[in-house]
């Protein structure tokens, strides 16, 4: 269980910019669904790494395995074969209980929809991962996160009293409040209008730039991918390309060529 607790390091050190270390890696990651004739290979021996303190986008056509890759890397779904590590922890070997603790303490999640518990207030939703573990938030950090996401006057509202953009910002705050090793974002702007979408992406970008958080984002939107430091392209369960310093146009062109 010790291996799951976040290593005790200085804030200064944990907030260091990217130095090429990997926040999460996968080697020979294979995920299949079904058996025999109906077997579907979602991921086929994928080797991949997500660099710390960077924003990585995963793109690919539907059925490419991008969501499965993220679920497997985040310990949400069991892998069929291969080795997945978050930091130094081999998560493919963890029990359900250990995975639960890993998600609670070391990972943050932002989903496309149904991100928040409807019966809890925005503040309770933000603190939920801490409440689940009976932990107290660091008050300074909490205030900093809430203020920078401009949520300070929305804390006591229920999710249905918030706009879509505000709801996604609450989800971002919830992902940040535990200062996780990695934040996994699954189509975080999929349900938002473009203004709110860019706002949320701006916050994720700042989380990486200002607080050196690690963000992995699945998206199908080239303009969302343009916020990333690196875009990884998937097709048919294989990594088929990488694009550093992406722009919307470059991403768009690459997707076109993949689909061709």
């Amino acid at each position: 269980m010790d291996q799951l607790t976040k290593p005790q390091v200085d804030d200064a050190e944990s907030l260091r910019p990217s130095d090429g270390t990997m926040a999460a890696t996968a080697t020979g990651l294979t995920k299949t669904y079904g058996k025999g004739d109906t077997q579907v290979v979602a991921l086929d021996h994928v080797d991949i790494g997500f660099e710390a303190a960077r924003l990585t986008a995963i793109m690919g056509p539907s059925g490419s395995g991008k969501s499965t890759l993220m679920h497997c890397m985040a310990g949400l779904d069991a892998v069929t074969e291969g080795d997945v590590r978050v930091g130094d922890t081999r998560i493919s070997e963890l029990s359900d209980k250990e995975l639960t603790l890993l998600r609670r303490q070391r990972l943050g999640f932002i989903f496309q929809a149904f991100n928040l518990v409807p019966t809890l207030t925005a503040e309770e939703n933000i603190l939920l991962p801490l409440l689940l573990g009976g932990r107290e938030p660091d008050p300074e950090w909490k205030t900093q996160v809430i203020n920078s996401l401009k949520l300070d006057d929305r804390l006591h509202h229920r999710p249905d009293e918030l706009s879509g953009g505000q709801q996604q910002r609450v989800a971002v705050a919830r992902a940040l409040v535990t200062r996780p090793d990695i934040i996994f974002a699954d189509e975080p702007t999929g349900n938002l209008d473009s203004k709110s979408g860019h706002e949320v992406l701006g916050f994720l970008r700042r989380a990486v730039d200002d607080w050196h958080q690690t963000v992995v984002m699945v998206t199908h939107d080239p303009s969302a991918a343009s916020y990333a430091d690196l875009v990884i392209f998937l097709r048919d369960g294989h990594v088929v390309g990488r694009l550093e310093e992406p722009t919307s146009d470059l991403v768009y062109d690459r997707i076109k060529s993949l689909e061709a």
Binding site: D96, T100, Q105, N115, V117, L132, R174
Partner: peptide, 14 residues
Amino acid sequence: VRQLALLRALGASA
């Protein structure tokens, strides 16, 4: 179901 799954994803134990 989705709320339960969300809680599980965020680190609620079974």
